[in-house]
Amino acid sequence: MCPLIKSTYGYHVRKTNPFLEMADLIVAETTCDGKKKMYELLGQTRPTYVLELPQKPNDPDAAGHWRRELVKLQAQLEKRFGVTITEEKLRGAIELMNRERRLRRELAALMQSDNPPLTGRQLLDFKSSISGIEADLQQYQKAIEIFKARLVGVVGAAGAAASQPVRVLLTGVPLVHGVERVLEIIESHGGLVVCQENCTGIKPILEDVECNGDPIQALADKYFKIPCSVMTGTTRRQENLLYLSRLYRAQCIIELTWQACLTYDVESYHIKKLSEEQLGLPYLQIETDYSPSDSARIATRIEALFESIRSQPCFRKTCPSCKP
């Protein structure tokens, strides 16, 4: 069992996650078998509704099935809470969340700079502070303005190339609150995580929900396009990585896999191949769990990766392949 599932269930048993305790209904999803079965246990004492995410996104029946799952959820919600979910209300919520996604994308895009005004760790912290509340969105807007001002101040003031951090694209499993250890190890050993292609990073916010037309269809379209690792027969994650690694000028790809996460572990084969053969970037996979017992060993591997990148002649010069 992967640590993420154990941890979620641990919060449930110990009643220590305030959001879980406040929830009237848990809307769950079949993004992996472990979670799917965990929700069965969670559902014994908490109202839980599971959405079935299709696993073959290219199958002609898949998109229709996913839309019907959302229609059923809508009916369930209306019945359970005695409300009517109108198109107007849905559009309002879509617009609000689109605004949040835009703000998050804008902040993430600051990392494209030669000398980003914040670290990957700080960027990840911002992710946790946002929740579709108007006041939060305004705070977020202010933060972007402050960081943008800093950006103007430092451009061109970059230090010697040798002391500049190695630009890392971090991919793989999500880094949920409290287990940011690997990101911290990367950034305390000479790296800067310029892009996080995972479910706590940019992966779910690359696209907005279409505001026009049938809102349920628009929601179905948006979430269906996220290349969840439980899916098969799609290369959308690889396409995203190709695009993001160039946009953010990554110098290596580090993939994080939670121990016992089968789908990401197997998929890492494709990502290593993509990284080395198509992108020409060094690739390192870190498989670990939530305990810190292997931190020193992870640090050694990350340091060795950075040493090998820095030893390449193109690191010190302005390498044409490092520029978009």
Partner: peptide, 11 residues
């Protein structure tokens, strides 16, 4: 002689 790639045992 520089490192191209490496693998190492985990914990």
């Amino acid at each position: 002689g520089t490192v191209r790639d490496f693998v190492m045992n985990d914990r």
